[in-house]
Design a binder for these strands. Sequence first.
DNA 1: TCTTGACTTAGAGTTAGCTCTGGATAGTAT
DNA 2: ATACTATCCAGAGCTAACTCTAAGTCAAGA
Lengths: 164, 164
Amino acid sequence: MVNSVESDKSKGFNIGEVVKQTGLSAHTLRYYEKEGLLPFVTKNSSGIRVYTTTDLRWLSMIECLKDSGLQIKEIRQYIEWFRQGDSTLQQRLDLFANRRKVLEAEMARMQVVMNKITFKETLYTTALKLGSLAAADEDKTIMRLKKKLFDSPDDFDKRIQEAG
Amino acid sequence: MVNSVESDKSKGFNIGEVVKQTGLSAHTLRYYEKEGLLPFVTKNSSGIRVYTTTDLRWLSMIECLKDSGLQIKEIRQYIEWFRQGDSTLQQRLDLFANRRKVLEAEMARMQVVMNKITFKETLYTTALKLGSLAAADEDKTIMRLKKKLFDSPDDFDKRIQEAG
DNA sequence: TCTTGACTTAGAGTTAGCTCTGGATAGTAT
DNA sequence: ATACTATCCAGAGCTAACTCTAAGTCAAGA
């Protein structure tokens, strides 16, 4: 066995194991640690990192916070708050409440983009069928769809109609 | 009047006008042009850029494509296809179809993140009410919510439960 | 013993997308 | 004419989040 740490799960995982489980690179794991994102990781007598299941849970949490749009330094701030205990409950609640608002706005934005992209997909499908983009632009079904999607009081939506 | 170009709309807009209308900086607009994203922008006899309404529509399109996750160079590729005319209809359709798939996946991912963040928000609201995170973790309502949200066959979701 | 391969460190390099600097020129207002 | 603002260009600098390099340590298998 090359990885003795790996074979005895009670002692935790070495970095190679964590790479396999998380999909993150060893470089990235060390980078996260340097940036203060994994303050619980310990090292054995040879100086080798030993990751526990708690560290793996933190990595999942970090992934979630990252996906929510948080930067590394903001995640570090959250972890520092966590380590300070119940005196920082309010700060952490504020952070999650803010994340939820940001995510909601982001998802609404993405829905708008999705509508536009879907319209373009339909437009180009018709263009291929008819042989030209100009013909598709004159197509009754396309014109009706365009009207339905973009003839709203939203100036931005109106501006996008003709390009591309 | 400082901006004579601005006051005569038939001649188009100068860069300052476009900055106001789009929220992009003049630097960014020149950068986009340098990167081949605005091949229709012309210059007057003094070398000053003159933007038309078509250019503004392209900027809206570029914003949409950027929001859909496309990189600058991929947007340039799209614009090159557009300029090549109907011979590239298939490529452009493929691009939009791919964008839709990517966006759908991204939105599904974001919904998962949203569930986790919303759970944390509820958890920390309860923690503040009860005075400690440990107490909130023992709370019946929280435990039921946690079970409902994360006791799925999804290993990832299970792993996240305890951290933070 | 030697090789293999995973690990260690500090620190340099990369990529995308801007963002800014400096110095010159152009156009308008008084 | 003077002052002021907007614009031009080339090119350097910045930030985030990695990503890699170099030089060396360590443990296990043949």
